[in-house]
Amino acid sequence: MSKAILTDITKCIGCLECVKVCKNTYGLEYDVPRTWQKNDGLSAQNWTAVLQKPGKKYIRKQCRHCLEPACVTVCPVGALHKTAEGAVMYDSDKCLGCRYCMMACPYGIPRYDWDKPVPYIRKCIMCYPKIKNGEQPACTAACPTEATIFGERDALIAEAHKRIKETPGKYIDKVWGEHEIGGTSVLYLSDIDLGFLSYQPHLGNTPLPNRTEPAMKAVPIAFAGMGGLMYGLNWIIRRRMDKQGKKENEE
């Protein structure tokens, strides 16, 4: 059921068709980059971007649609949710603009309408309305070289491993997003290291929500424990004071 996008870096020719079609599909305006901001391609008006690396390597950047997304976990009002189809969706009606999702994302994907008085979070939504109707996302449909393809996640992982096996030496033997922080719905096959797509080159396989879970589970315990501790302390001190008071009275 869970859909995914597989991008093969070696096939991308950097034609920017995906970027163009994405902009047209969602009516995104011209980009006015904030001059002091480090430009990494994405912005509130650019939901996908193609990065260029030395050696004519083109890497398409977009939301990774994690299987266990940090942004979904941290949103205090549940404005973000992971759909069964795989897309991580944003509900602007619920959002209160705390930008915790932007802080939590290890890939730095969600962007903000900084210049608007009523700003929203903007990011790739994997063309959810389209994939719900059984179509494929605009970007994969537009790709002329089939560098980025859409399909069932399991099938795509199998395809990726097949490609690695068939052409030994062409790829690094790793499917980016297969296990990384619990797996993502946007997978990469590459001949260069894609560590630069996230804030640290190696993210590990532990899903990020697992890191806050113990703390959140401890909340009721801490609440009751602190209450009990304080009440017990108070009880002991009162008893001691009573005894002392009695002693003084007796004397």
């Binding site: 976990t73 949103c75 205090p76 619920k94 915790y100 959140m216």
Partner: peptide, 10 residues
């Protein structure tokens, strides 16, 4: 709108 998994919610 509740999301009890979120520390910020708490």
């Amino acid at each position: 709108y509740w999301n009890p998994h979120s520390p910020l919610f708490e």
